[in-house]
Amino acid sequence: IQALPVSKTLQLDLLLGTTQRFVRTEPVRPLFKQLLEQVGAGLGEGQGLDAMAARLAAVEREQFQPFEDRHPFVWKNLLLNEFAYAMFPKGGAADIERELMGIVVKFALIKLYACGLMAHRGADFSLDDVVRVTYVLSRAITHNRRFLPNLLQTLQDHDALRLDVMTQFVL
């Protein structure tokens, strides 16, 4: 896994870009729009995808990793709760891969948005922010029946709905 090339540009384009396009065409909650704006500001939206990707990589290295080291239970609990909530697997063997991809995409979105909010809030980022990001994204994903299927379809259209790509998104 450590040898996999991690493309932050691809991650931003597919996850954040697809989300931004979705928000422009679909009704979403104001808290979700506010979070999206803060994430964009934190990652330097408007400076180009490569600059944003470099900022994301720096935030992951300089802020996310130390935060994770101080609070290792947060991301584990988040994933375990998602598996329990999704009652994974629920669709049988035929749907197990797509269900897993949905869980991974949700986790990747939460991590990406947490990193963007870390970049925006700096040293003020806290566990409360993790709860906020998780809550806002979970509501956006769970309460909008088109959001996750749209995102999964976009990933599939770009041949990115594969385990090797998903692994890159959460590394």
Results as ranks from 00 to 15, higher is better:
G44E: 04
T154L: 04
S126A: 15
T18R: 08
A41I: 05
T18N: 10
G91F: 12
N150Q: 14
V105N: 03
D164M: 01
E60W: 01
F83S: 00
P89F: 03
V136W: 01
Q34S: 15
A108E: 11
G46Y: 08
M166G: 10
V104M: 15
D157V: 07
A54P: 01
A123C: 00
F125H: 02
R61P: 02
Q65I: 08
A58L: 12
L79H: 00
D164I: 09
M118A: 04
E99P: 08
L16N: 01
R98W: 06
L148V: 11
G46C: 09
I96V: 15
D128K: 09
Y135V: 10
A84S: 10
V105T: 15
S7G: 09
R162W: 01
F169D: 01
P5I: 10
W75T: 09
F64D: 09
I1T: 07
D124E: 15
F147G: 04
P5G: 06
V6P: 01
I110W: 01
V6M: 02
T142V: 13
L10G: 02
K106G: 10
I141G: 03
F147M: 13
Q65K: 13
G46K: 11
E60D: 11
G102W: 04
Q168L: 00
A123D: 14
Y135E: 12
R132I: 00
R162Q: 11
D50V: 11
S126Y: 11
V136R: 01
Q168A: 13
Y113Q: 02
N77V: 01
